[in-house]
Write a protein that binds this DNA or RNA. Structure first.
Ligand SMILES: NC(=O)c1ccc[n+]([C@@H]2O[C@H](COP(=O)([O-])OP(=O)(O)OC[C@H]3O[C@@H](n4cnc5c(N)ncnc54)[C@H](O)[C@@H]3O)[C@@H](O)[C@H]2O)c1
Ligand SMILES: NC(=O)c1ccc[n+]([C@@H]2O[C@H](COP(=O)([O-])OP(=O)(O)OC[C@H]3O[C@@H](n4cnc5c(N)ncnc54)[C@H](O)[C@@H]3O)[C@@H](O)[C@H]2O)c1
Lengths: 228, 228
DNA sequence: CATTTTATGTGAGAAGATTCACATAATAAA
DNA sequence: TTTATTATGTGAATCTTCTCACATAAAATG
């Protein structure tokens, strides 16, 4: 089952104590799969179901569940609905989280238009850009100027921000956000943001992702050519 | 130095032997930083320079370099230019790689417009979409119909594809690509693609990334409220 | 030219993550 | 109701990754 594909989790490598364990990253994967299975009418899953759908081994799935105190039936696997509830309780998905998005360039616009975030409990309540031209992009989808950040953060009790500004502005924007009460940042710029220890940052580096696949493929090809 | 921020690497979790080691993922991070430092005129770096800029420890940087046979001067650190060359040789960046992009929706369009991929040796030679409306989006930036995939893959010797289609189509598109000779896929859809063992897949799951930050923040807040 | 300083390079030990193996419990079958 | 079957749950072993400590070499200083 778990052979024949390179699989990947999202990534987070931590240094503070607010460490996201590998096991928890996988829990997110299981959850994502479970949401889809559930919407397809699947009412019961087994460790191998989740394993097959996420690219890990069944033992790993059970071990992960064990770590978070999630238990199934010794023969009947797990009930989709109650497993979903348990997972969502585990990562505070009982309610929807308001996030803001700063930087409405290419990437920011794509993210802001994505309709499925809400299914995962992610609600982008407002978007911001320093460029006046971008600010009046659309009437139904307002882009605010950075001056209104504090107001919106307070009004919607926002803790988490998505940062999609150019690398030169990233640290500056980050500092402002942290001063305004933001405690978590998803950073798409390729710079390491310096933040106080009470702020969580996750970097998504798309160039690295693509480059690593290119590398793997060329490495694979090299190796195979040795057998010709 | 390495305290006070949560740091993250891009991610890849492997099952085949074409495993991307953590150390290699970090090598990509060092490289990205080095490119920026280099363009800022920095001619010499130390393990702590790279560590500070990427969120790892200096020991780790040296250990990683050691693993890949990269050596510096016992006192003078590393020369930016020669280190860059060594790293690029390491992951075949002597030449630029042609990749294709399938799915020109929100995300695909953002990716296709990103001008800095080329600096990282990533050249998107063509984009594809099944939607005829998207196909004639712009005269200067042609979006091809899927029928022309094979032709373009062959013409530009493409090995790697970026897949940004809806989850329902992802496996189908993936199968076609593999049949046409693609050996590496960067998959933005939230499904696990089943591929033969000679194909490398990396999944980028943006919902998971955001959700994990939300989780970390709420977890952190909970913990802090215990001390009130 | 000898001495001090400073950063590298790496073995050894620690920590973390994954796999293995099997006892255990729930269900199904007889 | 007894027996067989099947999936879970988890300690122990293994494998991987990270950290520590310090010897070592290059450069700077006197
Ligand atoms: N687009 C991609 O596919 C891609 C790929 C890899 C990395 N990235 C990274 O993601 C980030 C965004 O990429 P992009 O292509 O959307 O860039 P972009 O230049 O298209 O958009 C950046 C936006 O940020 C806005 N901005 C600049 N400074 C700001 C500030 N101080 N406050 C608020 N808004 C500000 C700009 O007006 C602009 O609209 C960049 O750091 C880029 O390196 C993007
Ligand atoms: N946009 C985001 O911010 C975001 C966030 C998280 C995940 N994703 C995932 O990324 C993927 C793309 O997202 P999106 O927002 O760009 O979706 P989208 O619906 O805007 O675009 C998908 C595009 O793929 C095209 N397509 C469909 N089937 C195709 C086929 N067989 N061959 C070629 N093209 C085909 C469609 O015509 C459409 O243009 C989805 O799987 C989505 O779940 C996107």
């Amino acid at each position: 089952m778990h052979k024949g594909f390179v699989k990947q989790l999202f990534n987070v490598k931590q240094i503070t104590k607010y460490n996201i364990r590998n096991s928890l990253r996988r829990i997110f994967l299981y959850h994502g799969l479970l949401v889809r299975l559930s919407s397809m009418g699947v009412t019961r899953v087994f460790s191998f179901t989740l394993a097959g759908g996420t690219g890990v081994t069944p033992e790993q799935v059970r071990k992960d569940f064990s770590e978070y105190g999630i238990r199934g039936n010794r023969r009947g696997g797990y009930l989709t609905s109650s497993l979903l509830k348990e997972l969502e309780a585990l990562f505070n998905r009982d309610r929807i989280s308001n996030v803001i998005l700063v930087g409405m360039g290419n990437l920011g616009q794509a993210l802001s238009k994505y309709g499925l975030f809400i299914q995962r409990g992610i609600n982008i309540v407002a978007t911001f850009d320093i460029d006046p031209f971008k600010q009046k992009a659309r009437a139904d989808d307002i882009v605010y100027p950075p001056e209104r950040l504090q107001e919106i953060i307070d009004r919607f009790h926002v803790n988490v921000a998505i940062v999609a500004v150019p690398d030169i502005s990233a640290q500056e924007v980050c500092n402002e956000l942290v001063n305004m009460g933001i405690r978590g940042i998803v950073n798409f710029s390729p710079v390491l943001l310096k933040v106080p220890e009470y702020v969580v940052v996750t970097n998504v580096n798309l160039s690295d992702e693509i480059e690593s696949v290119i590398w793997s493929v060329s490495r694979m090809k090299e190796e195979q050519s040795l057998f010709l």
